[in-house]
Amino acid sequence: MAAFLLRRLVRGLVLVLLASSLAYLLAAYALRPRAELEGRTPRPPEAVIDAQLTRHNLNDRTPLADRFRVWATGVAHGSFGRTREGEPVDGELWRRLGVSARLLLPGTVLGCVLGVLLGAYAAIRHGGAADHAVTFLGYLLLAAPVFVLAVLLQTAAAEANDATGLRLLTWVGEPPGGGPLEAVRHAALPTATIALAQAALVGRYQRALMLDVLHADYVRTARARGLRRRDALLRHGLRVALVPMTAHAAATSGPVLFGGVCAERVFGRHGLGAWLVEAIARGDVHVAAAVTCLAACAVVLTGLAADVLSGILDPRVRAAC
């Protein structure tokens, strides 16, 4: 298992290197930091523009290969370069990573748990009203993009605030300080948004997996040994049905990151996603490359976590690798 994980880690590293390099090359090729400087009034002299761009390794008149070499050397030494304004990318990057992680992680974990439970519940009640309700809700959530969901939740919360006359929930920005209550008030809506979207993705698949084990021989054996139907399905059925779920959950990391970008915009969080969108709009090559690199790391790490988890859940996986 350890050797297997090591191989996966090495392969993941190669993937991250490739993804980051390609992201940099694409950004450096397509984004035009020069345009913004040229657009200033009064327009700075050509030599000044060139000097400023060259200072930050952003000059499109330098060959792409040379710029890439400088950037890659910097990354190898732990620096993602500077923004167009000359600020170091790194400090801001880690600060915003914290913001994004606080926004995304609780929602994702909560969504996975909720999805597994709802999916399993729907499967156990297969064909019943509860199953239909859960399935309908799941499709509804899947059909609604994250930003629509976020805006709907905000509207609902605003109505609730108005109706009660209290500011029960607030959603714009990070909590300015204050106790854990303030943090919860701020986090509730964005977390719910992410969690619901994730639960829909996970739940539908978990329901299908659970339906497969509903009539499994070992569940029947467990009942014949004296477990109640519900216990047999949870302890023996769900446990087996969770194994393929790990890989599926890891595959949702892409949609989760995209959902994160939308959620940051809607809830006014200054996280990585918002930063990436701004960077692309402003032609900030190094920021775009750095954020993409982190996203690649996140996807690879999620995959690795899924491998470990499926190894823990299923002895046959441990034996096979």
Partner: peptide
């Protein structure tokens, strides 16, 4: 039960 290959939970 009949089929010993599938009658035991594979993960325990």
């Amino acid at each position: 039960f009949q089929d010993p290959l599938s009658a035991l939970t594979p993960v325990h």
